[in-house]
């Protein structure tokens, strides 16, 4: 990250942390708002730290699997729309309808229809897939007219045009979509866990709410947020590297 870009990010994090701490200390929003320092102290004890880490690994794995499957499916659907133009409108409508169903309802249905351990991955897949579909469709359509004309005049087949022009052109947009979808995949995995899993951040959240364990609740929420931010930042680095060549 460049120095000029890092400054505002660090400043934003510090201001957020300070506000969180002050609101908690002053009980500005009641006693259910735990100060950041208390949450960090809770997470830093060996037992709690191990518990949160294990839950984060579990949820992170499910979110990653969902992100990979959802991104692949979203990209494949967008590719079908490009390679078989008569399918484009139907696929667009199908994806929009799927995205229109509230994720919480999708999770409930999944809990009843897919194997128990698979629900978080399926929900994460659906949460991530639409964003990548939209980004891929936009990216695959973003080639310059001159480049398309060139491929047509050089007698390129549809497959060669897709492979050598459309996909490389679309890569930055696709990775933008994957990066934006990563936090959704984490949320999807957590919601999926609520309905079916016994480990992971989802069950920990439910357990904390039911037992009125406020600090634990905040610690789990913070862990989930850090997981999303880490995924977003990592994919941002990948996007920057790809943008250097394909952007």
């Amino acid at each position: 990250m460049k120095r000029s870009a890092a400054g505002p990010v660090i400043g934003g994090v510090l201001v957020t942390a300070l506000l969180w701490e002050l609101i908690g200390r002053l009980h500005a929003f009641g006693s259910a708002w735990a100060p950041l320092s208390t949450v960090i102290a809770y997470a830093c004890t060996p037992a709690n730290g191990a518990l949160l880490l294990a839950a984060a690994v579990r949820t992170g794995s499910e979110a990653l699997a969902g992100l990979v499957i959802g991104s692949s499916a979203g990209f494949a659907l967008a590719s079908c729309a490009v390679l078989v133009p008569r399918l484009a409108r139907g696929l667009d409508t199908f994806a929009s309808l799927l995205n229109g169903i509230p994720i919480i309802a999708v999770a409930g249905v999944c809990a009843l229809t897919v194997p128990r351990d698979g629900t978080p991955v399926v929900v994460a897949t659906l949460a991530a897939g639409f964003m990548v579909f939209v980004a891929s469709a936009a990216g695959l359509a973003a080639t310059l007219a001159g480049q398309r004309d060139l491929f047509a005049v050089l007698g390129a087949s549809r497959g060669a045009t897709y492979r050598r022009l459309l996909v490389p052109c679309a890569l930055p947009a696709i990775l933008d979509g994957v990066r934006s979808a990563a936090p959704s995949a984490v949320v999807g995995a957590i919601i999926g866990e609520w309905f079916s899993a016994e480990t992971g951040l989802g069950p920990l959240l439910v357990s904390a709410m039911q037992n009125y364990a406020i600090v634990q609740l905040w610690a789990v929420a913070l862990t989930g947020a850090l997981l999303s931010i880490a995924a977003y930042a990592l994919l941002g680095c990948l996007r920057a590297a790809v943008g250097m060549r394909f952007g």
Partner: peptide, 19 residues
């Protein structure tokens, strides 16, 4: 001519692939 790859072309926009 296009199908047999016997047409070469260059436009005002160079249309080079940047990658």
């Amino acid at each position: 001519l296009i199908a047999s790859h016997q047409l070469g072309i260059a436009f005002q926009d160079h249309a080079l692939l940047p990658w």
